[in-house]
């Protein structure tokens, strides 16, 4: 299906994009009165309240070190402290969006013809148990150290889902979709339950009801580890279910 004027269309869009990029370049680098994005001061750019773990008070005490305790929030990874502690409500919305999209995938994937099954080769059969075991281990490590190192529930959950996808490729019907759905629902209920437990304790949604501990230890950060564990389980089961929908071995009636 060729368009008649494909070359003309390409040329037109190319010229339009050159014009567009010139406008954006002028706004970024030659703004009015010599102001551009470089003239922003560093104190206006970096959100220091999160870095120094002092959002509520006006006068910041700028001393946060490894092994400290008694700050507002106790995780060493500041991005994690924003995602799961300060802006946990945001993350709840994100999880709901992910859930909605996976539900849409399941709804639209309903009828598929059964694909012809090709048995896995000897290389795959030998390698997949080892590779998937290592993948699952790395995923669990990343989830449990989400408040100390880069990573957390979402990338760790994606890694665990990768390990399970290897296993699904290795053996058909390795995972039942109903079990995945149940695990996912339980994890989601756990997140909501943790949020409401904080409400019961102190009156705030997603209140940190666990002790903060010392910054940098494994059991620190309070509710962060619990929430990231639940998020990891939920993301892993969701991604596994969407991958097994796409592989498509179960639905037969078309």
């Amino acid at each position: 299906m060729k368009t008649r004027h494909q070359n003309m269309l390409n040329l037109f869009v190319f010229l339009m994009l050159i014009l567009f990029s010139a406008v954006v370049y002028k706004a970024l680098f030659n703004g009015e009165q010599g102001k551009n994005w470089r003239s922003i001061a560093k104190s206006e750019k970096v959100s220091e309240s999160y870095i120094y773990k002092n959002v509520n008070e006006q006068n910041m005490v700028k001393t946060v070190q490894m092994g400290d305790s008694g700050h507002e929030e106790g995780s060493a990874n500041i991005v994690t402290s924003i995602v799961v502690s300060y802006r946990a409500f945001d993350t709840l919305g994100e999880i709901l969006v992910l859930f909605a999209s996976i539900a849409g995938v399941g709804l639209l994937m309903g009828k598929r013809r059964k694909r012809t099954v090709v048995p896995a080769s000897i290389v795959i059969q030998t390698a997949i148990p080892i590779v998937s075991l290592l993948t699952l281990l790395v995923g669990i490590f990343i989830i449990l150290h989400g408040h100390l190192t880069p990573g957390g529930g979402f990338p760790g959950g994606a890694l665990i889902a990768g390990g399970f996808v290897f296993l699904v490729l290795f053996k058909e019907n390795f995972l039942k979709k109903k079990i995945l759905l149940a695990v996912e629902s339980l994890a989601g209920l756990g997140i909501i339950g943790a949020a409401f437990w904080g409400t019961l304790k102190n009156g705030y949604f997603f209140f940190n009801f666990l002790p903060n501990g010392n910054i940098g230890e494994l059991f620190s950060g309070g509710i962060v580890m619990l929430l990231y564990l639940l998020i990891g389980i939920k993301v892993a089961s969701e991604l596994t279910s969407v991958a097994s929908y796409m592989i498509g071995e179960e639905e037969t009636n078309s």
Binding site: K45, V46, I78, V79, R87, D90, E94, L98, P150, F154
Partner: peptide, 29 residues
């Protein structure tokens, strides 16, 4: 990188952590 470690004595060198947290949401969506 905005992660407190034993070698990070100067926290004023950390990059802005807020966009990274927002982009995490964006990637998942």
């Amino acid at each position: 990188a905005p992660i407190i470690t034993e070698s990070s004595s100067n926290l004023s060198l950390f990059v802005d952590p807020l966009p990274q947290a927002l982009i995490l949401t964006s990637i998942v969506i």
